[in-house]
Design a protein around this nucleic acid. Structure first.
Lengths: 225, 225
DNA sequence: TCATCTATAATAGTAATACTTTCAACAAAA
DNA sequence: TTTTGTTGAAAGTATTACTATTATAGATGA
């Protein structure tokens, strides 16, 4: 069986659906490569155009600006993470186990996933780690939110909050704890590699310790006494 | 008694010490106002020059670029927070109490502090909440780190980690928990106001609930069993 | 007091960024 | 076959992110 994944990303993010054309897919594919390579601030549509042998104007026919492209790939990432989580937690009865899977999926080293031909999930993971916050840290966050640009992130957050609720219906902060897990899975890894003294893993650079830290954090908070 | 606070900010951040001249202080003061008003991306030295009645070139004699200015005010903020924390926890014997003070200082609504004439701490708090991560989410984080541009943040993190250690010397993740507290105090408030469904406080918009969430998170993790 | 040093202002200039517009070429759809 | 839609090519604009040059006013110092 050959499976190929497609997520329906918010139509309003792009002027033309990039999944439906060769050029569109190239924009996404090489957009990911270049943003990863040079960082979001240095990345421009002109450089992307040169990379894929097209023109700036052609790219602008797909995305209003580079922030929309960032939102697009970040939304894709969260959709993909939620899909993975659904898939991996399917038929798992224990809420504890489901939560552990969630923590592990968010913290683990991601490898490029074969079921999506033109998207490199490993690069995408690193982009979300180091550029993801820039998708919502803007003065236009309210409009973007109204346009539902953060829905995939919220959906994932709500799903994990659901696991927390399943585990302990009396715990008072399932959503905040869920967003804390998601954020910290990414931030602690960024710190570990770039600002190690903000963590306890600087010396070992051992990714599995992040999982231990988060599991300890989560389960001591929600455990029933 | 009239007290005035001065923090020694990393010399390498500025080309000329902005504290020592009228223009320099105006750059900091109105830099904070404008970054708060329009957001870091839209903010430019040209706009700042116009606001304070000087020229772009004059501002460039103080700061190489706007990212350095951001680092400067963010460093000032973390120094100020550490100072407040030291001050407020002085003579408090109980590690639990010291940790609660830390959480509260980081989460509380900050009011403009009279002891610093030209810096508006309230605006600065909001800037760090919505722009602070941009100080280290760059491709040049390694060099910036080598130049010690993140030292004030790390110092604060280490101080709170010390409180955690005092409370429970066996807890394995004092630094990661400390950076989690600092980050989440700011992020959860940002979410509460801008992306409420990532939190449990969207409806009430009650800031004290963030304190409760963080206290619960911290103390259930580090409590000895 | 004269020299000089410094900080700022005023002005101009450059390369790059973030777009927009127009038009031609071509392929697919009706 | 006409129409429509997509891309390429080329050009143009306003703004950004700087750098450089010169002039001037005020403080410092010999």
């Amino acid at each position: 069986m050959e499976l190929s994944l497609k997520f329906n990303i918010n139509q309003k993010l792009s002027l033309r659906n990039p999944e439906e054309s060769d050029l569109g897919r190239k924009i996404i594919q090489h957009g990911i490569v270049l943003v990863h390579q040079m960082g979001f601030e240095v990345f421009t549509f002109k450089k992307l155009a040169k990379e894929i042998g097209t023109t700036e104007a052609s790219i602008y026919r797909y995305f209003e600006n580079k922030h929309r492209l960032l939102l697009y790939i970040v939304d894709w990432y969260w959709s993909w993470q939620e899909y993975r989580l659904m898939f991996q937690t399917n038929n798992i009865a224990s809420a504890e186990e489901r939560l552990k899977i969630a923590i592990s999926l968010l913290s683990d080293q991601v490898e490029d996933d074969v079921s999506t031909s033109y998207i490199n999930e490993k690069l995408l993971y690193e982009i979300v780690m180091s550029e993801g916050a820039k998708s919502y840290l803007t003065k236009h966050v309210a409009e973007d939110n109204k346009a539902k640009f953060f829905k995939p992130y919220k959906d994932l957050c709500a799903r994990i909050a659901g696991f927390i609720r399943d585990y302990n219906p009396d715990y008072k902060y399932p959503f905040s704890l869920s967003s804390t897990i998601i954020e910290m899975a990414h931030s602690q890894k960024y710190y570990m590699h770039n600002l190690p003294s903000l963590t306890d893993f600087g010396a070992s650079k051992d990714e599995t310790q992040i999982v231990s830290f988060l599991e300890n954090l989560v389960f001591s908070s929600i455990r029933k006494h």
